[in-house]
Simulated scan of single mutants.
Amino acid sequence: MTRPRIGFVGLGQMGRPMATRLDEAGYPLTVFDAAPFAPIGSATSATALDGLAGVDILILMLPNSAVVTAVLEELAPRLSSGTLVVDMSSSEPLQTRALAAQLAGRDLRFVDAPVSGGVRGAVAGTLAIMAGGDISSVRPVLDVLGRTVLEVGPVGSGHAAKALNNLVSAATLSVTVEALRLGAEFGIDPATLTAVLNSSSGRSNTSENKVAQFMLDGSYASGFALQLMAKDVRIAVGLARELAQRTEIADRVAEQWSRVAGEVTPQTDHTAMYELIGGPR
């Protein structure tokens, strides 16, 4: 069976290892990025977006909805009828639905399939992928990239689920850091309190996989930027506004993460919140 020709746009920290896995799996691959990049295996490097015109599947791994829209405005007229566009970026759910409708008018298919798992998951192919729309024709491709592929609903649902997941993740990280700081001020060693959390009802992904690994040693090297987490939290809260839903805790989480995100560099890891929040009033 002939494998589909894949185009991949966006070779950042996440995109490059994902594209590399597809190349290593033997998919005919053409890659493009706005910034200079080193070659990827046997993949063809497009020097302009129109070099992707002949692909069967177009995967986007870009910073936000605005960039996704800009790329597709230029590229969509060049794509063949029936081409499947897969947006694996962290985009805005309602904009995703509007974009899917626009592409359908050009006889282009669209699904959203954002990921969770960070750079390590991208390298290992163990990402969690949240898919919105009909992924039946692209499922084998997604299985190369992720350990878990969850079909969460119609187009846009993947992006909504990703933002909501990261809202919960950010909120959990914030309250865990505050608890550790409070415990330390009272005289409880943070490592000891982490052990308490992990053996009790306060256990979370943060306490199990981030505190000892990236916070207490000061490495802050989980591979997911603080500003990107803040962006996803804002997407979740923005969705609540669009749906006229009240979000008291989420509003405070968004306020905190947005404030701190404005004080750091794009390279700052989200686990650095350990030293950026808490402390005396």
Score class of each variant (00 low, 15 high):
G82V: 11
L84E: 00
A46N: 02
G41R: 10
D112Q: 11
I59V: 15
A19P: 14
F32Q: 01
L94D: 15
M88G: 13
T30M: 02
P36Q: 07
L99K: 10
L103A: 13
A113E: 13
F8P: 02
Q95L: 15
A53E: 01
A113K: 12
V68H: 04
P93A: 10
T44Y: 01
P63V: 09
G15I: 07
M61W: 09
A66K: 12
T20I: 08
A46G: 05
A53C: 00
L60E: 04
P39A: 12
P114S: 10
L103R: 11
T69E: 15
G26M: 14
L62V: 06
V67D: 06
V86G: 01
G117Y: 07
L94H: 13
D50H: 14
A101Y: 09
D107V: 10
L72F: 03
V9D: 03
P77D: 06
F37R: 14
E73S: 07
R97D: 06
F8Q: 05
V31K: 00
G51A: 12
V67R: 12
M88S: 15
I57A: 02
D50N: 15
L75R: 02
G15V: 06
G26P: 09
G51D: 10
G121P: 05
T83S: 08
S81Y: 06
Y27S: 05
I57Y: 02
P17W: 07
D112Y: 08
Q102G: 15
V9W: 00
G121M: 11
S116P: 11
L22F: 11
R21I: 07
R106C: 03
R97E: 12
V31Y: 01
V119P: 03
L75E: 00
V115G: 09
I59A: 10
F37S: 12
A53D: 05
Q13W: 06
A25S: 14
S89C: 05
P77R: 04
P63Y: 09
V55D: 01
V31S: 01
L52T: 03
L62K: 10
R109L: 06
L22Y: 11
V9A: 06
P63S: 11
S45W: 02
R78H: 11
T30E: 00
L72H: 04
V111C: 14
S81W: 00
S89T: 09
R21K: 14
L94E: 13
N64Y: 12
L72D: 05
F37I: 03
L84W: 02
L58W: 05
G117M: 10
D33K: 07
E74N: 01
R78V: 09
A48E: 14
R97L: 08
V68K: 02
A48P: 01
L84K: 01
V115T: 15
